[in-house]
Each structure stands twice: as C-alpha cells, then as structure tokens.
Amino acid sequence: MVKVRDGDLDRLGMLFERHKRPLYGFFYGLTREQELSEDLVQNTFFRILKYRHLFRGEGDFKAWMFHIARNVKHDHYRKNKVNLKDDLEKWQEKLGHDENRSTEMQQEEEQQMLSMAMDRLPVEKREILLLTKYQEKKYQEIGEILGCTEGAVKVKVFRALQELRVIFKQLERSH
C-alpha cells in the first residue's frame, strides 16, 4: 500500500487480487445482493486510491480497508435513502422462498441453517461477526475500525454470538 501511496498504481492491482474476496464476502454478507456488493467493492478501491495519501503505513492495511468499506456502505445507504433495516425485511421475504435460498446456500444443512441465522441477525451484530471472520479475529484491529476498545469488541462479538445461537436453535427446532 505504501508503494500505491507513492504513485505505483500497479500495486493496487495486487492489493485488489489479495483482498477482493474477503471484501466482497463482507458486503455480500450484509446485503445479499451480488451486483451491489461488487459495486461497493469497486467503490472501496476507488476511495483507497483517492485517499491513498492518508494511509500512514504504520497500521494494518486490511483494517484501514475495512474502515473505508464501512464508510462506503454507510454512504450508499444514506445516498439511496434506504436503510439496512428495510433491506433486512426484503431479504426476510426472500427467506420464505426456498428456491432462492437453495441456490445461494451451501449444501450441508448445518451451514445452511447458520447462513439463515446470520441473515436474521440485526445488521450491526451481523457486521461485527463478518468483520471477525474477514479480519481473522484480530479484535484490536476491529476496535480501530469501529472506534472502540479491544475489550468492547469482544463484548460485541459475545452478544452477537449469543443471539446467533438463539436464532440457530429456533431454526433447528422448526426443521
């Protein structure tokens, strides 16, 4: 990233190849829309390039990238005057259609159920779990992204996992 900041744009291609999948996974986990998630990845890289001079080179690039990704997501919903709650309702409608879900979900039943439970989790809790997954459990870096302490991140993860477990068990019982 330091080389990109200093004007070597070819390196941005390398960063894109390395991080496009986790970033896409993060947006897709939040929106469940393929095209929108791809556009948000593209916008994130656009901002990384635009604000490259602000990267100090001291911290973790991935944490900086996810920080920008969250801003991109907020701006998208603000600009389109749609909030994630509305979107959540939209997908909960989608959840009713097994045909839609079956193509998106993985084969194993447990994974399917976990994916379903994730979809039913409130967006801020889903976001913290997605950050934990794609930021590889680096709680301190997640704290930097969210602007809170490492301990506060652990509490947020704990609460999100607790709620996920409750939803997961409800789904298990209804199957």
């Binding site: 999948r21 986790p22 998630s37 976990l114 993860v157 996992l161 996920l164 997961f168």
Partner: peptide, 13 residues
C-alpha cells in the same frame, strides 16, 4: 459457533 462461522465458505464475486 464462531469456528463454524469461520469455516463458512466466502462467496466469490
């Protein structure tokens, strides 16, 4: 549960 989440395959763009 956390481990299962980590194992969940990331979707591809």
């Amino acid at each position: 549960l956390d481990q299962q989440l980590l194992k969940m395959e990331a979707p591809s763009p």
